[in-house]
């Protein structure tokens, strides 16, 4: 432990933990997790078949990618998420901005959109399968339905929060309504839209896995269901790890995108 933990107590009431302490704590909790896992599987406390050792899971993850063409499944999953998510954004962002800018537009769409939000997207799976068969369409449709209504509402709420003074400033500078929306409201709300997209992308991953587990022969979820048939718990766990890693990766990518797009949000004083 470092010297500052000697001078101050480790558990300080409502005082921020230092960088070192946070890193130490984060590594610590994961070390304990893997420690317990390794211990349990090596001492035979748990059934090797149901809970394979972590080293075995990592080995089969490597094997999946190196020898079994798992990368193809991963790419299919990624393209499903990104494709459906992009389509949802193309509709939700303009619509949400319009709804947040014009109460008349909100009055038209809000009753419709908010009703759909109460319908869990997976409840559409059976009907989507009947309508679209087993190709890509039902999966994309599920992701689309699962994401779009929340995204519209988030974008609308953020748009409404754009301060009235900004709008009025633009009006008194001689801006027309369309100019106010395009040149003031939209750029003002854009950072929040990107944050909303980041949150919704995480949700899209959830629906993807559901779609692939229920009705797919390709993708990460389908691989996991295949593995289940052959009692390959190590491969199921590999799938979980890869999904988690991808989720984290996309989240970091969005955070980086946000920093890159909005340098003016970084305060230098």
């Amino acid at each position: 432990m470092s010297s500052d933990t000697r001078s101050k107590p480790f558990f300080r009431l409502r005082q921020p933990a230092g960088r070192k302490q946070r890193l130490f704590s984060a590594l610590g909790i994961w070390a304990i997790f893997f420690g317990v896992w390794v211990f349990a599987s090596s001492t035979g406390m748990v059934n090797e078949l149901l809970v394979p050792a972590p080293q075995k899971v990592f080995a089969s993850t490597y094997d999946l990618f190196a020898a079994r063409g798992f990368a193809g499944d991963v790419l299919i999953s990624i393209s499903r998420v990104l494709g459906a998510f992009a389509m949802a954004c193309l509709v939700a962002v303009p619509l949400g901005v319009m709804m947040g800018s014009f109460p008349a537009v909100e009055a038209i769409f809000a009753p419709f959109v908010s009703a759909w939000r109460y319908l869990p997207a997976p409840s559409f799976i059976p009907i989507l399968l009947m309508w679209f068969g087993t190709g890509e369409a039902p999966k994309l449709a599920l992701l689309f339905i699962g994401v779009i209504f929340f995204l519209i509402t988030l974008v609308m709420d953020h748009t409404k929060n754009v301060r009235e003074e900004l709008v009025e400033t633009a009006l008194t500078l001689g801006a027309r309504r369309s100019t106010v929306v395009m040149k003031v409201i939209f750029p003002a709300v854009l950072p929040d839209i990107v944050i909303a997209m980041r949150q919704m992308l995480a949700m899209a991953w959830t629906y993807l896995v559901i779609a692939e587990i229920v009705a797919s022969t390709t993708g990460i979820g389908a691989m996991m269901m295949r593995a289940r048939r052959f009692l390959k718990t190590d491969e199921i766990l590999s799938g979980i790890i890869v999904i988690g890693a991808l989720g984290l990766l996309f989240d970091l990518a969005f955070a980086a995108l946000h920093r890159w797009m909005f340098p003016y949000l970084r305060k230098t004083r």
């Binding site: 003074e165 009006l171 500078l173 750029p187 909005f262 949000l265």
Partner: peptide, 28 residues
């Protein structure tokens, strides 16, 4: 209605944060 002939300055900050000072001043 509002118009270019009557400019308004508010108490609350109304700078367009995504634009540089120069671009803010050019906006109108």
């Amino acid at each position: 209605g509002p118009g270019q002939d009557r400019g308004m300055v508010f108490q609350a900050y109304t700078s367009f944060d995504w634009l540089s000072v120069q671009k803010n001043v050019e906006f109108g």
